[in-house]
C-alpha cells in the first residue's frame, strides 16, 4: 500500500519524457538568448529575459520529482523580484539621462470602467482569503495578486511613503518570524508543528506584502484622476 503511494524510482513517464522536455527547454532558452544577442534596445532585452526565465523553469521541472517542484516555486518568485528591481533601475537610469527639471509624474489616467468599481473588491477579497489559506510562496503570490488588484482598482492616488515603510516593516517582522520557525525545526524538533506554522505564515506575509508593494508602486501609473 505504502509503496504504491510513493515509488522507489522515478516513474517511467518522467524518465521517458526527460530528454524531450530538456531539449525543449534548451530550444526555448536558445531562442530567447539569441533574441537577446540580436536585440539592441534595453527594454526589449528585459522582456526577453522573461523567456529565458521560462526556459529555466522547463529545465528544472523536467526532473520530475518533488524536489524539482520545490526548486521551481521560489525560483519563480525570485525571477519576478529581479525583473522588478532591474526595471526600476532602467527607469531611474533613463530619468537621470533626461533633463532634471522636467516633471516625471505620470500622466493621470482618465478611464471609467464599470468592472473596476464593482468586481475588484470581491475578487481581491477572495484571492487574499484563498492565499492566506494556502500560505507559503504560492499563497503569498496569490494574496499578493489580490492586493495588487485591489490597490490598482481603488482611487488611491498619492499614497504616502509611510505606508510603504509600514509594509516593509511587516515583511521584515514576518521574515524574522519565519527564520525563528526554521531554526526551531533543528533546535527544538519536538515543536515542529509550531515551527511549521511560523514558517508558513511568515513566508506568506512576507511574499504577499512584498508583492502588494508592486501595487502601491503602480498606483501612480494607473491610479485614476
Amino acid at each position: 500500500m505504502v509503496a504504491s503511494i510513493v515509488p522507489q524510482l522515478v516513474p517511467a513517464f518522467y524518465s521517458l519524457m526527460y530528454t524531450t522536455v530538456l531539449y525543449g527547454g534548451l530550444i526555448v532558452a536558445f531562442i530567447g538568448l539569441i533574441g537577446i544577442a540580436m536585440e539592441k534596445r534595453d527594454i526589449q532585452v528585459l522582456i526577453l529575459t522573461d523567456i529565458v526565465g521560462l526556459a529555466m523553469l522547463i529545465i528544472v521541472a523536467a526532473v520530475g520529482t518533488d524536489l524539482s517542484e520545490a526548486l521551481i516555486l521560489p525560483g519563480l518568485v525570485v525571477e519576478l523580484a529581479e525583473i522588478m528591481a532591474i526595471s526600476e533601475i532602467l527607469i531611474s537610469h533613463e530619468m537621470r539621462k533626461k533633463d532634471v527639471h522636467t516633471s516625471f509624474t505620470p500622466i493621470p489616467l482618465n478611464i471609467d470602467m464599470e468592472i473596476m468599481t464593482t468586481a475588484p473588491n470581491f475578487i481581491a477579497l477572495l484571492l487574499i482569503g484563498y492565499g492566506v489559506f494556502l500560505s507559503g510562496f504560492t499563497g503569498g503570490a496569490v494574496a499578493g495578486g489580490g492586493i495588487v488588484i485591489y490597490v490598482l482598482s481603488r482611487k488611491v492616488r498619492g499614497l504616502p511613503v509611510v505606508v510603504l515603510d509600514g509594509v516593509g516593516a511587516i515583511s521584515g517582522i514576518s521574515w524574522c518570524l519565519w527564520i525563528i520557525g526554521f531554526l526551531f525545526f533543528f533546535i527544538l524538533p519536538q515543536y515542529w508543528l509550531l515551527s511549521l506554522f511560523l514558517a508558513a505564515l511568515g513566508l506568506l506575509l512576507k511574499v504577499a506584502s512584498k508583492i502588494g508593494l508592486i501595487g502601491i508602486m503602480m498606483r501612480e501609473e494607473y491610479g485614476r484622476k
Partner: peptide
C-alpha cells in the same frame, strides 16, 4: 478562473494607459 480575468484587466489597463 479568477486570475484570468485579472490578467485581462491588467492588460486593458496597461494598453489604455
Amino acid at each position: 478562473a479568477f486570475l484570468d480575468p485579472l490578467s485581462i484587466i491588467v492588460f486593458l489597463f496597461a494598453l489604455i494607459k
